[in-house]
Design a protein around this nucleic acid. Sequence first.
RNA 1: CGGAAUGUAGCGCAGCCCGGUAGCGCACACGCCUGGGGGGCGUGGGGUCGCAGGUUCAAAUCCUGUCAUUCCGACCA
Length: 489
Amino acid sequence: MAKVLTPRAEDYSQWYNDIVKKAQLAENSAVRGCMVIKPTGYAIWENMKSQLDRMFKDTGHVNAYFPLFVPKSLFEAEEKNAEGFAKECAVVTHYRLRNNPDEKGKLMVDPDARLEEELVVRPTSEAIIWNTYKNWINSYRDLPLLINQWANVVRWEMRTRLFLRTAEFLWQEGHTAHATKEEAIEETKMILDLYADFAENYMAMPVIKGVKTANERFAGADDTYTIEALMQDGKALQAGTSHFLGQNFAKAFEVKFSNSNNKEEYVWATSWGVSTRLMGGLIMTHSDDDGLVVPPKLAATQVVIVPIPKPKDEIDEVAERIMVELKAKGVSVKYDRDAKKRPGFKFAEHELKGVPVRLGIGMRDLEKGVIEVARRDTKEKNSIPVDGVVDHVVQLLDDIQNNLFNKAKAYRDSHITKADSMEEFKSILEEKGGFILAHWDGTTETEIKIKELTKATIRCIPLDNEKEAGQCILTGKPSEQRVLFAKAY
RNA sequence: CGGAAUGUAGCGCAGCCCGGUAGCGCACACGCCUGGGGGGCGUGGGGUCGCAGGUUCAAAUCCUGUCAUUCCGACCA
């Protein structure tokens, strides 16, 4: 079979780029660093989105929409946040073009149309949202305020990669306001659990929940919680973050409420988000050298039926019947009834696009009363009696979902290694990759030094961490627990 | 934003050094044969050679600039 993708072992980055393009998930656009998400890719994102949206709503959140532009004066109100994002902001300075008198048919920015105040294209929406919340919150009766928005944001990245880091990306950002610190922290952690649940049970991507160090924390947050996943090349991917913002934004935007004793207090805030980056995580967690592998719960098409060698009345009849029955059970199914393409070509094509289950219906099999059922995750093929094929497929989709998670988890678990010295740390990083648990003295200085020496960063301090006395691998200073290091995307 | 490489048909590439008719494979269209893992033969269509300048009788080819992509670094979700 002709290989369409660069094998992972040969060049992992190239494999990733190949798969995004060949499976038609996305492509580069005419705008530097910005991608076009193609229908095949967008369908998966839509599935992610609708599931997450359901989960947000089930936990009491509602959707709203805030503007793309943030006046500079609002943007700079929360200083740390502004400083953190300043270097990567796109800024609108003019509101009009005009014909260029020197070059016919060309346009130029109208110098007379300079904006009084520049508009920052949102890299995140805290500023505009908190400036709005100020007007919405007066009393403890207005709290909690639990709002999510689905939006695009822009961060002017120097180096971009499809899905993993693009200048514009799609995400959801939740912004909540609470009367007490405890309640806000609870919200932050609840969302972290929700993200982990989504990652593991829908994306089949195991994650480690943890807290970011001060150095890796979101600008403007008191605490950043994260879910960290491990990709097949041994690099970590930050898949989602949930921030406890304390009263930082409330103070910056004067968001106060009267408590039940009629005393004024600043509200407590959270924000949290996951983005189209999850698509990158999905690809790099499950896919192989033959193409994309999509967990059934997120697949746009869960089952494809291929007539062998080509459509024929008898085959069509069986296919139609199976489709009706599968659809009745909530399974999305397509019949690839294209007489011009040969079965071998179709097999390869659907494998490249990651369809979880393929049914091959041919006359030879039908005479024996069976259908060939092929699963994408293991490439296993079985002959299943026609009568039982629908139930078999429903069960199989479930098995595939579980198998993908278990396989990813086994890989992840076998790539968490303890290191007790810098030498050990470096050799694990070079030879094996993955997560490394090591003692750290708790200072930003040491963290940065380790990054300079090894390129590895502290991904998080795992929430379920065991306490264990030890010595920092760099400075030898005392440490009370190991933290999770890795090279990261 | 610094270093390197690349940009020629939808995709992958040759041609460039040494200036002179724009080529190959795949894909595409049509026909015939085929048909259980990316078929075979035949015929055919498709090009502002990334873009803008310059040198020259003549530029895909030489020069300058610019844009984009990939990789490496710094930065970042």
